[in-house]
């Protein structure tokens, strides 16, 4: 049953050091499918990406990737698994003493059998395609926030992952940059059939990309539906969240 899903979260409960928790949540992601997970602060959305990436090990329930339990991975398998994921961190995590080019080519240099020349060609092509040629040799300190986002995204997809996790990736970005970024990654996600999990406070940004929407509140799933169901706003939690109402379930 699990094999049809790329990722399956089954009855997971856990608590982070900061006190965020997940309570018996389940959802799944099919190949090529994108989902948006959102909710207010302390709703548990902060735990989703670290949980999927295997950064959290203390939990009940199961996380399956391609039918295999992430919990059962040993030391080497965990590294191999993370290599197969693309992870766009909240603060991008670009290596500060490396240029844009070096940051993007690092996973290839570490993991791939490609020659240095081939890596150079691939990375240059990606940089050019993403309109980053002007800052190819700049270090993160000299980049604008949108340039950092694009660099981190390119680094996350350079190994052709099947699943990419975008953790609050558009936070602090101007609306215009966010739209341009999402338009440019849409093609990449579709053409490479990459599945994506977007987490953040405002899922409306991902309307063009996500087909499923999950809202968390105090660690529970309070809404799980399609784009149409999300847009209809029939759920009281959704209505309160997007209308910023005080007297409601949240």
């Amino acid at each position: 049953m699990e094999e049809t899903f790329l990722l399956k979260i089954e009855n997971v409960s856990c608590e982070s050091e900061k006190g965020d928790s997940l309570k018996n949540i389940s959802f799944s992601v099919k190949k090529g499918e994108s989902i948006a997970i959102f909710g207010p602060e302390d709703s548990g959305i902060e735990i989703i990406c670290p949980l999927v990436a295997g950064l959290i090990s203390e939990y009940t329930g199961n996380v399956y990737y391609k039918g295999l339990s992430v919990k059962s991975f040993d030391y080497l398998e965990t590294h191999k698994y993370r290599k197969e994921l693309g992870y766009l961190q909240r603060d991008y995590g670009l290596i500060s003493n490396m240029s844009v080019h070096e940051n993007i080519s690092l996973p290839l240099k570490y993991h791939s059998k490609l020659s240095s020349k081939e890596i150079e060609v691939i990375v240059n092509w990606m940089i050019e395609n993403f309109g980053m040629l002007h800052c190819k040799d700049k270090r993160p300190v000299g980049l604008s926030r949108s340039e950092k986002l694009r660099t981190a995204f390119l680094r996350a997809i350079v190994l052709d992952p099947e699943l990419i996790l975008l953790e609050h990736s558009l936070e602090g970005q101007c609306l215009f940059s966010s739209r341009i970024f999402l338009a440019s990654i849409k093609q990449d996600l579709i053409s490479r059939t990459i599945s994506a999990i977007f987490t953040g406070y405002d899922p409306r940004l991902y309307m063009d990309l996500a087909s499923e929407y999950i809202m968390l509140h105090k660690g529970n799933i309070v809404f799980n539906g399609t784009r149409e169901e999300f847009e209809s706003m029939d759920n009281p939690y959704l209505r309160q969240y997007f209308n910023s109402l005080i007297d409601s379930p949240v």
Binding site: R82, G93, I95
Partner: peptide, 22 residues
């Protein structure tokens, strides 16, 4: 220590890089 605070070490981990070795 600075790289750790900037989440650079974590980003290496998330790329499947063995940080201790690297």
């Amino acid at each position: 220590a600075t790289q750790k605070q900037h989440k650079e070490i974590m980003s290496l981990e998330l790329m499947g890089i063995d940080t201790k070795l690297y």
